[in-house]
Design a protein around this nucleic acid. Structure first.
Lengths: 210, 210
DNA sequence: GACAATACCATACATTTGAATGCCATTGCA
DNA sequence: TGCAATGGCATTCAAATGTATGGTATTGTC
């Protein structure tokens, strides 16, 4: 009664732990033991210690289900941003109550409630790689700096544009030569937030369509 | 000392637990207690029990960090895709061992281990709105259909291109008139996977750069 | 005021779970 | 042969953690 060939077993241990972690369900040492068919807790424990030594896992001392993948243990924090279906005509909060779904966002430095997402309509921003149907993830803020990509409400409509202010006047500039900039008085524009991320979900089927 | 207004607190408890779950780090009752500033474990415990009653959480009996989101087996499910820093020269698994970080991905229909992400270099795909520095999220698969956006390995390099096959020959087509298609024998190309999503993280500062 | 409902607290208890102690079997090498 | 290295086992201990008991203060309603 000895052992198993090469480092095969440890590879299986790592794969098991990694998959569980990626699925959001960190395993216990005993779950590893059972999954791999060890008859002693210690055996699973030793493999895990080994993986930590090799830097492939990170252990939290005395924490239940404390193993993590290196790099994901710190900083990375995921929150859900609601995808607003209707254009927010009034207060944003009203629209959030009935979202089209949620997008997981790696939010470092942005509180959960401060994020939302909108689907882009029109081709006014194709010059900066934002195509119709893309999702923009927005962090709420009432102001913007020149050059910021913002979501602004003009009248009843919300649009994604590049922000630029000239004194009392605000210019919402499209990034497509076929469209003209919108210039308004600052009082006629409400900045809903700043675009912090752009996503295009291609899905399982279909090509680029180009 | 009494309490806090309406059901505000419970909402915060739920948000905290949900965020932690989505981040792949289920919290303990005491972590909830501490995060919300309760002075008794029991208080956090009661809120959690309440959330379970309301069906907003699911509890695992006597399991450490046992709270889950209901229906997490189906519906929106977030997994973390490793961002591969180096171009995968050999097997993909080797590169996954040392990722640059992880991206939260809403993976419906894709197993956790089947996803990874790469940072795009070069301007060969600007025609379909993929700019240098963008992140592509890829689902591993060894084959592709005409028109698919794929990550392929040619020699030591991995590139993002539109896939097209003509008999024994494979064409990797850039989406930028300034670049020429790459035409190779099928044996000289290895399909690493298919691009299912494109992301551009603009961050808190800076404009569009266009 | 009586009473239910809500929110919270202090503490104890039981289970889960990470870590430690000590030992055996196989392999490879000097 | 001797011996270090590896892979495994059985068991125990201690920390982490879910759960339960019992009590106080505030709010709202009849």
């Amino acid at each position: 009664m000895g052992r198993t060939p090469a480092g095969e077993t440890r590879e299986k241990v790592f794969a098991f732990v990694r998959d569980r972690l990626l699925a959001g369900q960190p395993p216990t040492v005993r779950e590893v033991q059972e999954a791999l068919g060890f008859r002693a807790v210690r055996t699973a424990q030793q493999h895990l210690e080994r993986l930590v030594e090799e830097g492939r896992l990170v252990a939290g001392r005395h924490r239940a289900r404390g193993y993590r993948l290196p790099g994901s243990s710190e900083g990375a924090r995921t929150v859900l941003a609601p995808v607003l279906g209707r254009v927010p005509a009034g207060a944003l909060d009203a629209a959030v109550e009935d979202p089209d779904g949620y997008l997981p966002v790696d939010a470092r430095g942005a509180a959960a409630g401060d994020l939302f997402a909108l689907r882009v309509r029109g081709e006014s921003m194709t010059g900066v790689g934002i195509l119709p149907g893309d999702l923009v993830i927005v962090r709420r803020q009432p102001t913007a700096a020149n050059g910021d990509l913002v979501v602004a409400r003009v009248g009843d409509e919300a649009t994604v544009k590049t922000f630029r202010s000239r004194g009392r006047r605000v210019e919402l500039r499209p990034e497509n030569p076929a469209f003209a900039p919108i210039v308004l008085d600052a009082g006629a524009v409400a900045i809903l937030g700043k675009v912090i991320e752009v996503r295009r979900i291609l899905g399982a089927h279909g090509g680029t369509g180009a």
